[in-house]
């Protein structure tokens, strides 16, 4: 980085950020009923469950998962069972990789 340049904009992500259903729909561009469908199907990382729809809160990991699911559904026309299968496999691969990494 050239020091004569003005300082770069600093972005401070909040790891603990939680979003309401409406905010998630806005951020991801995915309709609320679709998000709820994915959640009911168990496709999203389980977060704290809420009795009322307005009280459900989502975290960054869920946002990331949602965008991936949405991409798969749109790009490859994947059905919900296929999404379940693939997301389950991706999750398993990731946790096995993590186990492998932490062993070394």
């Amino acid at each position: 980085m050239n020091e004569s340049h003005p300082p770069l904009p600093l972005i401070e992500p909040d790891l603990d950020a939680r979003y309401s259903l409406e905010v998630v729909a806005e951020i991801t561009g995915i309709a609320t009923h679709t998000i709820l469908h994915y959640q009911e199907e168990g496709l999203l990382p389980t977060g704290p469950s809420a009795a009322r729809q307005e009280e459900i809160l989502f975290d960054d990991a869920t946002l990331c998962a949602l965008r991936r699911i949405d991409h798969l559904a749109r790009q490859y026309e994947m059905s919900t069972p296929a999404l379940k299968l693939l997301c389950g496999l991706l999750e398993e691969v990731e946790s096995l990789r993590a186990a492998l990494r932490s062993r070394s």
């Binding site: 770069l8 904009p9 600093l10 972005i11 992500p13 790891l15 960054d60 990331c64 990731e94």
Partner: peptide
């Protein structure tokens, strides 16, 4: 170009979202 603050407690595999 930007700077990202990696907060304390960034665990392995954690995804940090930069909006």
């Amino acid at each position: 170009s930007f700077q990202v603050r990696i907060p304390p407690g960034a665990t392995d595999g954690r995804r940090i979202r930069v909006p």
